[in-house]
């Protein structure tokens, strides 16, 4: 059942008419990315499941009023992100604003570790240990950076679409994306340095 989903053009008119086949096609195409977004924000399958259901219920209810000013994907991801962030706030009992400024202390983004690990065998095979390290690194990113990185680099949204989903400027997205990419590169470099020393 969990094979790669083939993307096809979703017919907006059919969706608005409540065509069940088209609604099912929409769910099939967007349920995996919505799952990943929810998991990345909430880190809990139970909470993610509630958010996924809530997201698609809102999508189904709102589709008649969807004007197409953004892409369908952007609209759906925006609902999913908002739902997941609200759940986080309810759980933590505090407010985390996605559009708050990030402290980009001077020199903080400069790469420190220089090691060329691109051709290491474990990179090619992406073994279980590397995956664990990657998951740990991305989970360790500040939420504001993690969401930007996920939408742009993991879900293939453009800078503009990512900005639309999060209600940010393009330049804020670029700043956060660079910071996230550099932190993850640094973490993976540390990891590969450690595995070199252990050999």
């Amino acid at each position: 059942m969990n094979s790669t989903v083939t993307k096809r053009e979703i017919d907006l008119d059919l969706l608005k008419q409540g065509n069940r086949g088209e609604l099912a096609a929409l769910v099939e195409q967007f349920s995996n990315p919505v799952y990943r977004i929810a998991m990345n924000i909430l880190h809990s399958e139970q909470d993610a499941e509630d958010i996924i259901q809530e997201t698609f219920i809102k999508v189904f209810h709102g589709i008649r009023n969807f004007e197409g000013r953004s892409s369908l994907a952007t609209w759906i991801y925006r609902i999913a992100v908002n739902e997941a962030l609200m759940a986080t706030r309810r759980r933590k009992g505090n407010l985390v604003s996605i559009d708050a400024e990030i402290d980009m202390g001077e020199g903080e983004t400069n790469p420190v570790e220089i090691e060329d690990w691109c051709c290491r065998p474990e990179v090619e095979t992406m073994d279980a240990e590397l995956r664990r390290e990657m998951d740990k690194a991305v989970a360790g990113l500040p939420e504001k950076l993690r969401i930007v990185f996920q939408l742009r680099d993991m879900e293939d949204l453009s800078i503009r679409e990512t900005a639309q989903v999060l209600g940010l400027t393009d330049s804020a997205v670029k700043t956060r994306l660079l910071r996230a990419r550099l932190i993850l590169r640094e973490e993976l470099t540390h990891y590969f340095q450690g595995t070199s020393q252990g050999q």
Binding site: S31, D116, C118, V123, L130
Partner: peptide
């Protein structure tokens, strides 16, 4: 190079993560 590789590793990993 390592930045590019970092991005592609995460992209490839995401494609494999499916809803149960």
């Amino acid at each position: 190079d390592t930045l590019r590789k970092t991005i592609s590793l995460y992209h490839d990993e995401a494609c494999q993560e499916m809803m149960p």
